[in-house]
Write a protein that binds this DNA or RNA. Sequence first.
DNA 1: GTGGTCTAGACCACC
DNA 2: GTGGTCTAGACCACG
Lengths: 129, 129, 129, 129
Amino acid sequence: MFFHVDPTDGLAIYDQVVRQVKFSVARGAIRPGNLVPSVRELARELAINPNTVARAYQQLQTDGVLQTVRGMGLEVAPGAVKHCRQQRQQLIQARLRQTLAEAKRSGLDDEELRGLIDKELSDVVRDER
Amino acid sequence: MFFHVDPTDGLAIYDQVVRQVKFSVARGAIRPGNLVPSVRELARELAINPNTVARAYQQLQTDGVLQTVRGMGLEVAPGAVKHCRQQRQQLIQARLRQTLAEAKRSGLDDEELRGLIDKELSDVVRDER
Amino acid sequence: MFFHVDPTDGLAIYDQVVRQVKFSVARGAIRPGNLVPSVRELARELAINPNTVARAYQQLQTDGVLQTVRGMGLEVAPGAVKHCRQQRQQLIQARLRQTLAEAKRSGLDDEELRGLIDKELSDVVRDER
Amino acid sequence: MFFHVDPTDGLAIYDQVVRQVKFSVARGAIRPGNLVPSVRELARELAINPNTVARAYQQLQTDGVLQTVRGMGLEVAPGAVKHCRQQRQQLIQARLRQTLAEAKRSGLDDEELRGLIDKELSDVVRDER
DNA sequence: GTGGTCTAGACCACC
DNA sequence: GTGGTCTAGACCACG
């Protein structure tokens, strides 16, 4: 599927799952009406506990991104795309702000920081392939 | 002083303190032989629990950045500058990598992401003044 | 304390706890700034699992009724009273409606139903003493 | 038919079906010897899964309310009326007790509670028409 | 098979 | 001590 989990990320695992589901909806990888992977399936795939996935999915229901289809699983809610697009922007921006703020405060000069950003950006693009 | 703490950052508070002390040494804001603020003073300043500061200072001693001066407190260790410079690069880079990797995976197109980065970079510079 | 749990109630236990905390705030038994019983303490008192209490408390944080005081526990949030008063009315009313609707549909004649209601109401008042 | 299902009720759907069949027998809407709707028919009517109806019917057989008629389906058992009348009283009373007990504990004053009960009772009667 | 709930017990960060 | 998170495994309701 489209999900990754990084235990060294600092963010709670369930929160990483929440973000990634939102991002997947935001970019159209999962559409309203589509079923998301079952709790057990995604847990197996990510090698984490089903309860952790369940917790993420429950949060996503509270946020109105997912809704239950009885006995079938969980599907992306009708109005979720717009909400997820907004959230994507906000979540990414907030994290970016914190990261860059710390980087700047660390005393790296602007050139070094720019260099690091460009390096990591191109690495990220390369890894993507 | 030069320290900030952001409870919304995701990073543990004690870890933020550890990083900031290292960064302060890296950029020369505190020099080998300088005393760092006392546990109580820094705790008061950051409005956090003294135990949290104490834990950060303990970690910094373990890392060889600080050392005790009998009856005086904690000072920056002689060889700390080089170590902190290396760590600065590594710590910032690692965090940047995670942040950008998530941003990229979120499906934002490159232009938007670049735009966000530039925006936040300039905000960060502006806030600094 | 002020909390009860009835495993035969049909409602999930964590949901019963959520409702009772809201009701306690609504009637002023716990006030903004007051700490609620700790997860472990309430779990012990109600003879349920701490995770179940934690889940209820987490829901209450999501609902803005509780907020964490780091290392101290959870306190009632400043604006919670008004919210809880509204919720109390809604939650009680919804449940009352369902109960009475079923009772009416069951075919009991109005007299019998009235009689049952009065009987149970007075029992409830008596148990209270 | 005479059956309703409310997914927001809190009670399990199969239990709602069980109760309603009992209530229908209690008030004489279905009489001993009458066939109840087939599993498939009732499932279609209530827009629920046939397995859910089947489970309810199985429970009703265990309770002695329904019995199989070879090749025909399920009929109301001879002695069911008396049993269902008793159960109706008990089931309604138990639920009423829980609902009113919670309402009372919530701290609503007696007047408000009485007001809510009267309001919902008259609503229920009105909806019936 | 699905999600929802509960229990039990672990480790962590923070006070 | 506190809450937050995670794991492991159970049972239930529903399809």
